[in-house]
Design a protein around this nucleic acid. Structure first.
Lengths: 193, 193
DNA sequence: CCTATATTGACGAACGTTCGTCAGTTATTT
DNA sequence: AAATAACTGACGAACGTTCGTCAATATAGG
C-alpha cells in the first residue's frame, strides 16, 4: 500500500522537523513522487498528520496494553523493569513513540485540541491499568503498603524521564546510567524494607 | 531597551510555535512594528533566536546555580525539595524554561549543533555541582550510602518528569499529585532506612 | 473474450499567500 | 549634524492547495 509508505516518511519528517517544519514537497521527494500526488491519498497536510497521529497512538497503546495484560500479581520487580525495557525498545525500533512524545507536548497550535483528546485518552487508560496492577501488588504484599496512586505516578515519572533521555538520544551510556539510577532508587522506594 | 521587548515576544512565539512555526511578522505585530524593522536590532531570524536562547540559558543556569550555592551538607530533604519547587517556580513565572526545554529536545535542525553545545554545557555544570552535593550528604550520613552518581541521576530524572508535567501544563492537581508521588518514592529510595 | 467504461494514481502548471531578507527613505533622538 | 530606529517597497523562494490531463488498471456488459 502506497499510503503506508507516505505515512512512514511523513512520520520521520514530522518527528524531526515538527508539523510546521515538515514540508509536503520534502515528504513527496523521499517517497518518490510530486507533492501534488499526495492529494490522491490524503485530503491535505492536516489529514496526513492526523492519520500518522492515529497510527502512532494505536501502536503505542496496543504495545503497552498488550504487555500489561501479561503482568500478574507476583513479580513487580521484573514486570516493571520489563515495562521500562519495552518503552526503550519501542523507542529504538520505530519513530512512532518519539513522534507521539513531540506532538503531545509541543503540538501544532491549530490541532492542539484534537491531539490533546488522544493524549488524555491513552494516558488515562494506561494509568488506570497500571494503578490496578500496583493495587494488586500492594494487596499481595509484593511491594510496600501505600496508596496505589503514589507508586503509579512515581513510575510514570520514571517512564517520562527515560523517554526524555531517549529523545535526547546521542549518548547510549548516559541512558544506561540514568535508567539504572532511576530504577534503583525507584525500586528501593516502593519495595518492602 | 526595545530589543528586550522583541526578545520577550519572540520567546513566547518560539515556545508556542517552534522555530519554523514562529514568523517574524507575527512577532513584529505583537511588538508593534513592521517585521523589516526587526533588522535594525537583529541580523535575522537565526540571530534573534540564538540571542533568545542565550538569555534563556543564562537565566536558567544562574537561577539553579545560585540556589545550589546556598545548599549545605545538613538538610538534603529540604534542599532537594526546594530545588524541585524552584524549577516549578521558574517554569510558571517565565517562559524561558519551557523554551529551553523545547529547543533542547526538539531543536531546529540547522541550529541543532549550536544548541546542543549549550545544552551539554549547562547540563554537565549542573550535574557536577549536584553530584558533589550528594557526595557530601553521603559522607555526612544524611542519606543512604551509595555511589553519588546514582541519587544524582535519579534526582535529575525526577526533575525531568516534573518539567514534562509542567509543559503539559493544563492540570494543576495532577502536577501536585505527581510531584508528591515522585518525591515521596525518591526520598524513600535515597534516605537512611 | 473482447470492448467500453469507470477508477485510480501521478503529473505539470498555476493559484494566492506567506516567508525571510535587503535597499532606500523618513522620522526621532542626542 | 550625526546617528539610531522605524518606515515603505520590493525581492526570490517556498508554502499548501487546486486544476485539468494522461496513462494504467480494474470493472462491466454484450
Amino acid at each position: 500500500m502506497k499510503s503506508s509508505k507516505i505515512k512512514e516518511i511523513a512520520l520521520k519528517f514530522f518527528t524531526i522537523h515538527g508539523y510546521e517544519g515538515a514540508s509536503l514537497s520534502q515528504i513527496a521527494d523521499h517517497v518518490g513522487m510530486k507533492k501534488q500526488s499526495l492529494y490522491a491519498h490524503f485530503k491535505g497536510k492536516d489529514d496526513l498528520f492526523l492519520q500518522v497521529l492515529q497510527d502512532a497512538k494505536e501502536a503505542e497503546m496496543s504495545s503497552k496494553l498488550q504487555y500489561l495484560r501479561k503482568v500478574d500479581t507476583d513479580n513487580p520487580k521484573a514486570d516493571l523493569y520489563g515495562y521500562l525495557q519495552l518503552v526503550i525498545d519501542l523507542f529504538q525500533q520505530s519513530e512512532q513513540l518519539k513522534f507521539w512524545l513531540r506532538m503531545s507536548f509541543f503540538p501544532p497550535v491549530h490541532l492542539a485540541a484534537a491531539i490533546n483528546e488522544e493524549v488524555i485518552d491513552i494516558e488515562t487508560k494506561i494509568q488506570s491499568v497500571l494503578e490496578s496492577k500496583f493495587q494488586a501488588w500492594i494487596d499481595n504484599k509484593a511491594i510496600m503498603k501505600d496508596e496505589a496512586l503514589i507508586p503509579t505516578l512515581a513510575f510514570l515519572g520514571v517512564v517520562d524521564s527515560i523517554m526524555l533521555e531517549l529523545v535526547y538520544g546521542n549518548d547510549e551510556k548516559r541512558l544506561k546510567d540514568k535508567l539504572n539510577a532511576s530504577w534503583t532508587v525507584f525500586w528501593r522506594g516502593i519495595s518492602q524494607p
